[in-house]
Nucleic acid binder design. Structure first.
Length: 137
DNA sequence: GACGGAATTT
DNA sequence: AAATTCCGTC
C-alpha cells in the first residue's frame, strides 16, 4: 500500500498457496503482462489454461500457450498476439527479476515475489519528498 | 521450445 | 518504459 503506486498486492487469507491478489488502481495506465498473468492465476475459471505449480512457491505452468496468448491479445487489442511474442515479453522480465524460467520444465516460469514485493513496497517511497514520484511497475 | 538482439510501436 | 514484431541461433 504505497501512495501513488499503480499496483496493490495483498495476501488472500485461506486461499491455497501461493495466493497473491493484484489489481490496478482505477485510472492507472495500461495493464502489464505480469499483472495479467497473476490475474488469470487468481481465477479458477482459467485453471485449465494457466495454473500454479504445487511445490515450488510462485511457479506456474502455461497449460495452453495459444489460449493465454489469445486472451492477452484480446486484452491489449493485439489480435496477432501469439506465444512466441508473449514469451519474448516474459523473457524481458528475467533481467528485471520479476520472473525467471524453470529450466527443463516446458512452459514453466516462476515469479520472483521477494524481489517484486521489494519493488512494490520500496522503503524509499516512505521517505519520499512531496512531488517525487514513487517507483512504478 | 527457449533465448536474446534489434528495430519499431504505443 | 513496456511491450510488439521479427528473426537468427542453439
Amino acid at each position: 500500500p504505497v501512495a501513488g503506486c499503480t499496483s496493490v498486492i495483498g495476501y488472500i487469507p485461506g486461499a491455497p498457496p501461493p495466493a497473491l491478489a493484484v489489481r490496478s488502481s482505477p485510472g492507472s495506465r495500461q495493464i502489464q503482462l505480469w499483472h495479467f498473468i497473476l490475474e488469470l492465476l487468481q481465477k479458477e475459471e482459467f485453471r485449465h489454461v494457466i495454473a500454479w505449480q504445487q511445490g515450488e512457491y510462485g511457479e506456474f505452468v502455461i497449460k495452453d500457450p495459444d489460449e493465454v496468448a489469445r486472451l492477452w491479445g484480446r486484452r491489449k487489442c493485439k489480435p496477432q498476439m501469439n506465444y512466441d511474442k508473449l514469451s519474448r515479453a516474459l523473457r524481458y522480465y528475467y533481467n528485471k527479476r520479476i520472473l525467471h524460467k524453470t529450466k527443463g520444465k516446458r512452459f514453466t516460469y516462476k515469479f520472483d515475489f521477494s524481489h517484486l514485493l521489494l519493488l512494490l513496497w520500496d522503503p524509499r517511497s516512505l521517505c519520499r519528498p512531496p512531488g517525487m514520484p514513487s517507483q512504478r511497475l
